[in-house]
Design a protein around this nucleic acid. Sequence first.
DNA 1: TGCTTATTTGGCTATATTGCAAAATAGATT
DNA 2: AATCTATTTTGCAATATAGCCAAATAAGCA
Lengths: 117, 117
Amino acid sequence: MKTNLKTNLIKKKYSAEARAHVLKAFAHPARLTMVEALMEGSRCVCELQELVGSDMSTISRHLSVLRNAGVVIGEKRGTQIHYRLTCSCIADFLVCVNQLCFDRLENEAARMRGFRG
Amino acid sequence: MKTNLKTNLIKKKYSAEARAHVLKAFAHPARLTMVEALMEGSRCVCELQELVGSDMSTISRHLSVLRNAGVVIGEKRGTQIHYRLTCSCIADFLVCVNQLCFDRLENEAARMRGFRG
DNA sequence: TGCTTATTTGGCTATATTGCAAAATAGATT
DNA sequence: AATCTATTTTGCAATATAGCCAAATAAGCA
């Protein structure tokens, strides 16, 4: 039943476009890196820049993508703007992505072994 | 501790590029629609085409994106190729995306109310 | 008020993604 | 072998995204 509820929620309540939009926000190495940092607590833009290493304007653009998708939210603290995640479920979410990566590597490794021996 | 393990796994084991690549595979309305259909069981390419309504070549391209990201896997059954998800965690994953969508709508609604009254 | 610092936005070019139509494959079927 | 059928790949035009520089804001401070 639980799964059914979930499935229902997923399938009926919001459009695929809306969900794809959110997913797209995560789907960039720099943005993902920032999100992962934010999983540990809020960070100001300058910290995120240092972490990612791109131009400040690029960082800001990425943050606006995340903001628009409702993934992060920023608030002033003195002279800086500190960003944080809007939702704690994001961590679990990324664990699954990681699982997929892992499986993919495993499969590739297995295929390699197959080719050689 | 559990969270720490998770976090560790996410942060150290695979590159942000690899994870972003997987996420990108989900980040398209047509692909998301197909993935959601596959959550209920395997489907052949023609069924997915009917569901999404695009050109067959487009569907096939989308499937190759999902295949490359390790999200789906296809196997022959008679004359058709049936696709299925590689990982059951995907459902939970999408629940979180949905949650984000929901929150975003809520916030927007709240903001609208704020503007008016 | 004018200066400084932190962040965002506009303009631009380079690159990537999308989707259709046509051609190519790969297997099953006759 | 010839032919269907289901699917994938290629070529190409349209659109979207990324990233850098320079310019614009915005808020705190001299």
